[in-house]
Amino acid sequence: MPLLDVQNLKTYFHTRNGVLRAVDDISFSLERGETLGIVGESGSGKSVSCYSILGLIPMPPGRIEGGKAIYDGKTDLLNCSEKELRKIRGKRVSMIFQDPMTSLNPFLKISTQLMEPLFIHERMDKKKAFDVAVQALEEVGIQDAVQRMSMYPHEFSGGMRQRVMIAMALINKPDILIADEPTTALDVTVQAQIMEIIKQRQKDLGTAVILITHDLGVVAGFCERINVMYAGKIVESGTADQIFKNPLHAYTVALQKSIPSLHEKGKPLYTIPGLPPVLIGERTGCSFAPRSELPHTPEEAAMDGVFTEVEPGHMVEVHPATVVNYKQYL
């Protein structure tokens, strides 16, 4: 039984210009201790899908139009009371954000912020909570943790703050850690440190991690399974090896082709023609068809893709414009 089972999640935003279908009918699951990467460009719905599960979507304008997110076989996170959700959020599922600068409260000491979840969820006494918090800091590689406890966030560097965030997110030993672009705002050398720490802590605690990122390089080294999102839909899902060595969806292929490091110097980089689609309003057919270089007729483009398992564990949206020789998979 999967730890988290998301089925047919739809999150729409009702804006002045129409209905923005940020997440449009996606399903995925997460096993205990697994690392799942969600890759996509800005606006692909990768963050919104996770925020929806945690009930963090601003409503209005956002609205969850349908779907289920079964946690641990029992609770449906999308249809449970705020009280139940609050119990799970922060204790069983926690989150780290892109910008460690804004996700820590600048007016509170690190100790207060670290110990708060322990008071709320574990009902620890002060002394015990302090010890646990110090240990949590040490485990993410912060030296002089006891002194650091009485400092304020601005006294920490960016990398240190992100470490504190990780310590804070893991302090209750959650089952799921959702990391939303945890290293994007950090320097390259610090990025490597942070990813190492998340990996290490995951091994220690057996936490399942959902890593949301736009960087294919990061997921390649970190994740066991990868979901590629495009225009609010998962277009391809599989193990890291399947996604990188045998990518089937044209978008996955194109994304990998456009990375500069894999390019010969002097030759122009591969570019995906066209622009990402506008997500507002009713969409019919395949969202990627207008940008696809695979030959397809207008009638075919208007058809909906079929999300099919093409080999064990490897799901692809099969459509004439997205998969070469698509007929073999249907």
């Binding site: 560097s157 960016g158 990398g159 240190m160 320097d187 390259v188 050398t189 610090v190 990025q191 490597a192 440190q193 190492e196 960087d215 294919l216 390089g217 990061v218 390649a220 080294g221 970190f222 890291a240 090896d241 990188f244 060595k245 990998q256 990375i259 490091s261 894999l262």
Partner: peptide, 25 residues
């Protein structure tokens, strides 16, 4: 810096030995 750049290839990533620097700039 060179070794911190993630490479989009799971095999390389798994086998590679990173030079992870201590601390922050």
């Amino acid at each position: 810096l060179n070794s911190a750049v993630p490479v989009p290839d799971p095999d390389i990533e798994r086998s590679r030995c990173r030079i992870v620097l201590q601390g922050d700039p």
